[in-house]
Structure formats: C-alpha cells, structure tokens
C-alpha cells in the first residue's frame, strides 16, 4: 500500500514505456520500487522524504533514465 502523503514529500513518476524491468531501482530503493512478475514495475509515486537519498540513487541507476523525481511537493502557485 502506498498511502496518501500530504506535505513536503517527494513525487515520482516512471515512464513505463521506457522501463524494461531491469530492477536496478528496486535494489536502490526497495521500499519504493517493486518488480512483480517478469516486468511489472510498481512504485510509490509519493514516497516519504526520509527516503530521498535512495530515491535519487534509484533514478540515477536506471539504465534507461525512466524515472522523474521532484524533491518537494508540487504547489498550485498564484504566479505573477
């Protein structure tokens, strides 16, 4: 279960067209990325900030650069 997280958390999305199930991300951040069956990647899109280092390592270790991370919570600003 990847629960809702309200504030100051990270956001992650994986381009699953690109992902080839190499599972490097799963070794780097096992609490946030999991491979099911041969190549179904399941991941936490809103991981807790305490995992930040591992999430960033996961993104860097992906051989096809499929992982996009935002280090803080997106906000609906008022702009200018």
């Amino acid at each position: 279960m990847f629960p809702s997280r309200k504030t100051s958390e990270m956001r992650v999305v994986v381009d699953l067209n690109r992902c080839q199930g190499y599972a490097q991300c799963c070794y780097a951040a096992p609490e946030s990325f999991e491979l099911r069956g041969a190549e179904i990647l399941v991941y936490d899109p809103a991981p807790s900030a305490e995992h930040r280092g591992r999430i960033e390592r996961a993104a860097q270790s992906c051989p096809v650069r499929a992982i996009t991370v935002q280090a803080d919570e997106p906000a609906a600003g008022a702009g200018r």
Partner: peptide, 15 residues
C-alpha cells in the same frame, strides 16, 4: 491523491 505528478521545474505559473 498519491498520483500527483512531479514537476520538472518551478513553473512560476498562475494555476
């Protein structure tokens, strides 16, 4: 609500 997409940069947008 865990599905909110990451932003690649600060958009400085009026939402």
């Amino acid at each position: 609500d865990a599905t909110t997409l990451p932003h690649r940069l600060d958009l400085d947008a009026a939402w």
